[in-house]
Design a protein around this nucleic acid. Sequence first.
DNA 1: GTTTAAACGAGACGGTACGTCTCGTCTTCCC
DNA 2: GGGAAGACGAGACGTACCGTCTCGTTTAAAC
Lengths: 192, 192, 192, 192
Amino acid sequence: MVPPSVERRSERARRAILDAALELCQDQSFAGLTMEGIAKRAGVGKQTIYRWWPSKAAILLEALQERGGATLIFPDTGDIVADLRTQMTQVVRAFNDPMFAAYSRGLISAAQSDPEIAAAVVESIIRPRVDLCVDRLAKAQQAGDIHPDANLPDVVELLYAPLYYRLLLHTRPTTEAQVDAVLTMVFQGLRP
Amino acid sequence: MVPPSVERRSERARRAILDAALELCQDQSFAGLTMEGIAKRAGVGKQTIYRWWPSKAAILLEALQERGGATLIFPDTGDIVADLRTQMTQVVRAFNDPMFAAYSRGLISAAQSDPEIAAAVVESIIRPRVDLCVDRLAKAQQAGDIHPDANLPDVVELLYAPLYYRLLLHTRPTTEAQVDAVLTMVFQGLRP
Amino acid sequence: MVPPSVERRSERARRAILDAALELCQDQSFAGLTMEGIAKRAGVGKQTIYRWWPSKAAILLEALQERGGATLIFPDTGDIVADLRTQMTQVVRAFNDPMFAAYSRGLISAAQSDPEIAAAVVESIIRPRVDLCVDRLAKAQQAGDIHPDANLPDVVELLYAPLYYRLLLHTRPTTEAQVDAVLTMVFQGLRP
Amino acid sequence: MVPPSVERRSERARRAILDAALELCQDQSFAGLTMEGIAKRAGVGKQTIYRWWPSKAAILLEALQERGGATLIFPDTGDIVADLRTQMTQVVRAFNDPMFAAYSRGLISAAQSDPEIAAAVVESIIRPRVDLCVDRLAKAQQAGDIHPDANLPDVVELLYAPLYYRLLLHTRPTTEAQVDAVLTMVFQGLRP
DNA sequence: GTTTAAACGAGACGGTACGTCTCGTCTTCCC
DNA sequence: GGGAAGACGAGACGTACCGTCTCGTTTAAAC
């Protein structure tokens, strides 16, 4: 995050640390993750970790960015509701993957007491995906499928917030049925 | 939470512990809260805490239940949208109160790695408020103000999730404008 | 030791406490003995113990006095060396009994940091036995078997100290051979 | 005592711990000595103590060995009784020094419930001094000043045990008069 | 026989110290 | 000079006992 001199850095150590963090997080959840554990698993000195990352969340964040880069696409078939369903269903699947859920919960949990983590999570994970969704909604709005007064970032929130709600509040599991329910309510409105 | 013998319990110690926990959580956030710190501030032996609560989150939960009990009312003026706006605005205000926000974030954060905390948060904080909201929505549904097919718990989620989303993801602050936006979108629907 | 009112005292509780102390001391040695453990084993409230004894050593002391009272006799056959050998051999046997050794070591150990215990040990255990020995030596001195200048309490120390030395310093076990060696050296003198 | 890797060890920390232990033992006696207190006084983490010593007695033992090394000499003027008097008088003086007496009592007390301490005390404190005394006695025996049948280690015990007896049993203080009495009795024998 | 005051069992309380754990820094060698 | 190794100062963890302090409940002498 704030390195002393980027050139001499050992790529081997960097890779080992990122991999160890991901593996340990799977095994023991984010709360059980420790700097000491990562160092041991990666065969790396603790100082090497502290030199390049300020916290365990920062490590995980970087690890996830590397792995999750591929998912940054948003379908466009012309049917906005169908495309949203496709995309939201992917999110539901990710939230139901124990590993991904552990990462997400851990990072958001850490963000509650560390503003830097919070900012990094938003910047590198949330914002890019929201922007993509906003772009797709803008097309639909221009096509006349969405009310012209609608504030699109607010729409994105309205659609995805219920998924995060269940993930973080542990009320019910997220399901595809939830996606359908949200889409129906949001596009039809609640009035009879 | 899991008491050894409820009768002899010292109310003085109980109060001191709950108060100390709330005060320290304000000062140092939930992550900086320690059993040792609570004990010292409350003038209490650590054993006395461990005897009655399994974790610091459990203490905070009990403290919040006592203080927040008064908020368990839901207005009913006959105008469902106005009543929701009233209630949701109260939630927005609470989320903008640094102290309450710290508690909420801390508890939800702790819930991510402790299923018991998660269950307790849902049971004692979330569920009662959701139920109240569902009741109010049911009346509106019977009055013909809400589509008869709408699943009311899903509606509650749809309305409140965006508030939690901003609280936990730290994207933007929750505002009254957000409440209006959500209510407009949800009740009108996104179609033009 | 310093009772509030001796009459109402429960003999049942007293016996249970003394017995429990002895039993626990056998099982776990004096160092592992705790007031809490004694109370639990005796089926007695802690307060009942603190009401009548100031320390765990005081309990053990009283327990030992009751049991060991019978050993307060000193043989007198007319042959002082033989009588000393008889008596000292008894002491050796006691020191080689694991239970008695544990009690003795524990009490003397406790006496190092508690002057009251030290005084009590001397008064109730050591002094009576030393006095008996001095009496027997006095007879021998009058019979002309011991040098008239000899200071008898010093003689007692000279005879018994080597037994305590081995008990407490853990150099070698005390044996009957040691008794013989001591008696020979002391009565013959070291000069050729 | 049971080190993990001797090379990297901080000499500064070691010295601070040994010094703190000695100072605290003077102030509050061995029984009042705590690991926590030593750590605080030495400005050291508790782990650093536990890493290198298994118990507070082990610390004290090492501290004493360093300081007491100088006393390992035995006079040889040709007069065995005079030399013993010189040496035993030194021991009497040490036993009457409150600090030294506290250390000795504390260590021997601890040895009663910890065989490792007991062994260490014998090996590092008692044995070297006994050996020195035996050597001096052997010379005297060859010079014809001591009975050829006398078992010298037994003689050492006979001479020094009365000093330890008074130190540990707290009957009377050790004095130079006691040394004279012991030497007279032992070398003359008790017979008239 | 009833009263009544104490000793009793039980165990919660405010504390202290325990020995372990992890933190983030510092130090020491190796490459 | 970066990296491995890991000792270090710090301090929270949860546990064990300490000695004190209520609590009802026996219980046995005094009335």
